[in-house]
Simulated scan of single mutants.
Amino acid sequence: MLSQRLRLGVNIDHVATIRNARGGRFPDPVRAAHLAAQAGADGITAHLREDRRHISDHDIARLSKEIDLPLNFEMAATEEMLKIALEARPHAACIVPEKREERTTEGGLDARGQHNHLKPLIATLADNGTRVSLFIEADKAQLDAAVALGAPVVELHTGRYCDLHNDGDAKAAALELDRIREAARYGVALGLEVHAGHGLAFDTVEGVAAIPELTELNIGHFLVGEGIFIGLEAAIREMRRRMDAGRASARP
């Protein structure tokens, strides 16, 4: 059964980025999570990186205790992050690739190539009551690997589509969107729940939201940036409106 209403997960990492630029307590990413809930978000996403460049361990502890929305804990597949996830017991854990030198996540996880490393980690998280997702490219081999690993959810990387759109390469962007659409269809046929995210903005979200197999989008950096100009709540409400418009366009 295809999803009717598309869920919005709001990533609050870059509220913490602004806080950490100066130090201290402000702006508070947990306050941003509460604002996101008021604005209609369906969940909160936070990525605790190895170098703690934005979200901190204390942020994760507070989010786990203080917000009512489901917490999606983005994490690298390391023993350190596994231990934190087991203690925090988030609703979901999205396993992402991570390199110290990258500014942001640059591509999908190689679920196929890291099978032996990922399999026990995914099983441990699942046994602890956390729903595991894998952040992967829109590639059938990676979707097959997710099934083999026992991950019930995947999140398709939309960064390349957004970059091509932003560069004005409409033809290439359309081809990439088709690739995402086909991967979502294939993932659902395999029995996976399919999400998408990375780089989405007002002018790119509707095309992705129109893919009926998707059940959730995770969006953060753009919302935090737009919040500087129109307020975070207003930015989230506008994103919600555009997602709903995109989803409505897909209905027969």
Score class of each variant (00 low, 15 high):
residue 60 I to C: 13
residue 60 I to G: 06
residue 60 I to K: 07
residue 60 I to F: 10
residue 61 A to E: 15
residue 61 A to W: 09
residue 62 R to K: 14
residue 62 R to T: 12
residue 62 R to M: 11
residue 63 L to P: 07
residue 63 L to V: 10
residue 63 L to N: 13
residue 63 L to H: 09
residue 63 L to M: 10
residue 63 L to D: 05
residue 64 S to N: 11
residue 65 K to M: 14
residue 65 K to G: 01
residue 67 I to Y: 03
residue 67 I to C: 08
residue 67 I to L: 12
residue 68 D to G: 15
residue 68 D to W: 04
residue 68 D to P: 00
residue 69 L to Y: 07
residue 69 L to R: 11
residue 69 L to C: 10
residue 70 P to E: 13
residue 70 P to T: 12
residue 70 P to N: 03
residue 70 P to F: 07
residue 70 P to K: 05
residue 71 L to D: 06
residue 71 L to Q: 01
residue 71 L to N: 00
residue 71 L to F: 05
residue 71 L to R: 04
residue 72 N to T: 11
residue 72 N to Y: 11
residue 72 N to V: 10
residue 72 N to H: 02
residue 72 N to R: 06
residue 72 N to K: 02
residue 73 F to Y: 15
residue 73 F to I: 07
residue 73 F to H: 06
residue 73 F to V: 01
residue 73 F to M: 09
residue 73 F to A: 05
residue 75 M to T: 11
residue 75 M to Y: 07
residue 76 A to E: 06
residue 76 A to N: 09
residue 76 A to W: 08
residue 76 A to F: 06
residue 78 T to Q: 12
residue 78 T to P: 05
residue 78 T to M: 06
residue 79 E to H: 06
residue 79 E to T: 08
residue 79 E to N: 10
residue 79 E to M: 03
residue 79 E to P: 02
residue 79 E to D: 15
residue 79 E to V: 08
residue 80 E to M: 00
residue 80 E to H: 01
residue 81 M to R: 15
residue 81 M to V: 00
residue 82 L to K: 10
residue 82 L to Y: 02
residue 82 L to I: 09
residue 82 L to M: 14
residue 82 L to Q: 14
residue 83 K to Q: 15
residue 84 I to E: 13
residue 84 I to D: 05
residue 84 I to V: 15
residue 84 I to H: 12
residue 85 A to K: 04
residue 85 A to E: 04
residue 85 A to R: 07
residue 87 E to G: 11
residue 87 E to S: 09
residue 87 E to K: 15
residue 88 A to Y: 01
residue 88 A to D: 04
residue 88 A to K: 08
residue 88 A to N: 02
residue 89 R to E: 04
residue 89 R to F: 02
residue 89 R to I: 00
residue 89 R to M: 00
residue 89 R to H: 08
residue 90 P to K: 01
residue 90 P to S: 04
residue 91 H to C: 06
residue 91 H to W: 09
residue 91 H to G: 05
residue 92 A to Q: 15
residue 93 A to C: 15
residue 94 C to D: 14
residue 94 C to I: 12
residue 95 I to R: 03
residue 95 I to H: 10
residue 95 I to K: 09
residue 96 V to P: 02
residue 96 V to C: 08
residue 96 V to H: 01
residue 96 V to T: 08
residue 98 E to D: 11
residue 98 E to K: 02
residue 98 E to Q: 09
residue 98 E to P: 08
residue 99 K to E: 13
residue 99 K to S: 12
residue 100 R to V: 12
residue 100 R to H: 12
residue 100 R to K: 15
residue 101 E to T: 11
residue 101 E to K: 11
residue 101 E to N: 12
residue 101 E to R: 14
residue 102 E to T: 10
residue 102 E to D: 15
residue 103 R to P: 01
residue 103 R to C: 00
residue 103 R to V: 13
residue 103 R to Y: 11
residue 103 R to A: 13
residue 103 R to M: 13
residue 104 T to D: 01
residue 105 T to M: 04
residue 105 T to G: 00
residue 107 G to A: 04
residue 107 G to L: 01
residue 107 G to R: 03
residue 108 G to F: 05
residue 108 G to H: 12
residue 108 G to R: 09
residue 109 L to W: 06
residue 109 L to A: 07
residue 110 D to L: 01
residue 110 D to Q: 04
residue 110 D to M: 03
residue 111 A to P: 05
residue 111 A to T: 02
residue 111 A to G: 04
